[in-house]
């Protein structure tokens, strides 16, 4: 799907940045790259442009420009309802953060089952049952 198809509050993972010339380069230099997580924040009252959160920064893109960005929808772990089993797509953080999570069995590609939503959240992974803080869960993206 295209980035412009996201609804308010939804997140997505960039898979490809299309376009040519200036716009292609500008999107890339703002840090919109394959593998980047983007959240749709709000739409302008006139329906265009749209504000997105990218790498901790709010950026406004016109619909025509957002169309160049291919994404796949993902969900932060903290928004997954209890009882569901989901696949981890991306862990958003530094090496230390990723190491801590991998010790709980939360790494890209692995399945996670939500046992309890809040609070704290508890999940079952290949390595056992763990409790995860909401701040951490919001940086784990699944599908």
């Amino acid at each position: 799907m295209k980035l412009s198809d996201l609804k308010v509050g939804e997140s997505a993972l960039v898979t490809k940045v299309e376009g040519k010339g200036a716009i292609h380069r500008r999107l890339l230099s703002m840090g919109i790259l394959p593998g980047t997580v983007i959240r749709m924040v709000r739409i302008s009252p006139l329906g265009d442009p749209i504000a997105y959160e990218i790498r901790g920064v709010f950026i406004s893109l016109r619909r025509d420009e957002a169309k160049y960005i291919e994404v796949e929808k993902i969900v932060p772990l903290n928004l997954v309802p209890p009882g569901e089993r989901v696949r981890v797509i991306l862990v958003d953080g530094g090496p230390g953060f990723m190491r801590n999570l991998s010790e709980m069995g939360i790494t890209p590609g692995k399945m996670v089952e939500i046992l309890r939503g809040c609070c704290p959240m508890s999940v079952r992974t290949e390595l056992g049952v763990f409790q995860v803080g909401m701040g951490i869960a919001s940086r784990v993206f699944v599908r």
Binding site: A22, I23, R26, L27, M30, P49, A51, V57, F58, I59, S60, L61, R62, E65
Partner: peptide
């Protein structure tokens, strides 16, 4: 040519 309007908020 239309310049990109990629703007930081």
């Amino acid at each position: 040519r239309a310049e990109p309007f990629v703007m930081e908020l």
